Amino acid sequence: MKTLVEDTTETYAPHIIIVGGTSGLGLALALHHQTLGWQVSVVGSSAAKIADINSQHPAIVTYVCDLTDPSQTRMLLDSLSGTQFQRLIYSAGSYTNERIHHLNQADSDQMLAINLQAFEQVFRWASSHLRQQLKQSCQALDMTKGDKLSLICIASIAGTMDYPYASLYAKSKRAMIATASAYRAALAPYNIQVNCIASGYIDTQALRDLNDGDASHKPFIMSTQAAVDHIMQAIVDDVELVIFPRSMRYITSALNHLPKPVLNWILRSKLDKAK
């Protein structure tokens, strides 16, 4: 087991909390940290997925929480208030394909709540909690660079595009990127790192479900393990905004250099619905 602090009586293993860690990329990150010797706690909304993790990975601590309910989220964070952790990843997300479906009230509420409001609630709590840990303990001073206190959020490459016709999903992810950048600046004096991940298509079950069971047609789609490798390296290198795969990073960068009316016309022309 990987240890960070050792004495004659016990070994110290770092602790990670992954919000949205019961499936897809979040679960893959949870299992990867477990193989590295981390204590792992995951939060999810599905009781069935929680039960599956409890059965297959009993060492992982699980929490059920509906992030669309601020009171439930507050109760979750209160229950975690006595827990020390060195890393938190916000991997929860909600997506509705606005190219096909007109956004209804329920989908709008859910995307706003999970992609932005709950994210802000969790990050505000986590940053305060980590700062308090630093005041109460010198343990963090002994950490190696790779295991320093850190907050990470999973955004989307869609959030790196700046154009007026962006979907609610893209706008909420763009707000997440900006919020993470602000936290990075605010927490720098505490030596707490903040990283934001803006990936392209990842071959998860959720993406396959959105595409009739097969997402192989998505451009530059990558495996979950490849995404985990990118994210872990970015954390080690402490990259503020990680955009991958490289091919999509180049494409979005080029598009962002176009005049806004041209970019808006190009992207709007791809939509299947009238506005």
Rank of each mutant, 00 (worst) to 15 (best):
L151M: 04
Q117K: 13
Q34H: 02
N104H: 01
Q39Y: 04
A126S: 09
Q72H: 08
W38P: 03
I154G: 04
T68F: 08
C153N: 10
A140W: 07
L88S: 03
Q56E: 11
R131A: 10
D69P: 09
H102M: 13
H57L: 00
Q139W: 11
K49S: 02
I89A: 07
Q39M: 12
A51N: 03
Y90V: 07
Q72E: 10
W38I: 03
A48E: 13
A92T: 08
S94Q: 08
L112K: 11
C138Q: 13
H101R: 15
T62K: 05
I100L: 14
R87T: 12
L116E: 03
L80M: 01
S156M: 04
Q132M: 12
S81E: 09
V42R: 01
L112T: 14
D142A: 15
I89G: 01
S41F: 00
I154E: 08
Q139E: 11
Q34Y: 06
V64M: 15
Y63S: 02
H33I: 02
Q139M: 13
N54C: 05
A59C: 11
Q133C: 04
Q132P: 15
T96L: 06
S156I: 11
R131K: 11
Q72V: 08
I53N: 00
T83D: 13
L76K: 00
N54F: 02
Q86H: 12
D147N: 12
T68Y: 00
L149S: 07
L77A: 06
S128G: 13
T160S: 11
Q139L: 13
I152H: 07
N104A: 03
D147E: 11
A106D: 12
K49D: 03
H101Y: 12
A155D: 07
D142K: 14
L67M: 01
P58H: 07
T68D: 10
S46H: 05
D147H: 08
G146V: 10
S45T: 09
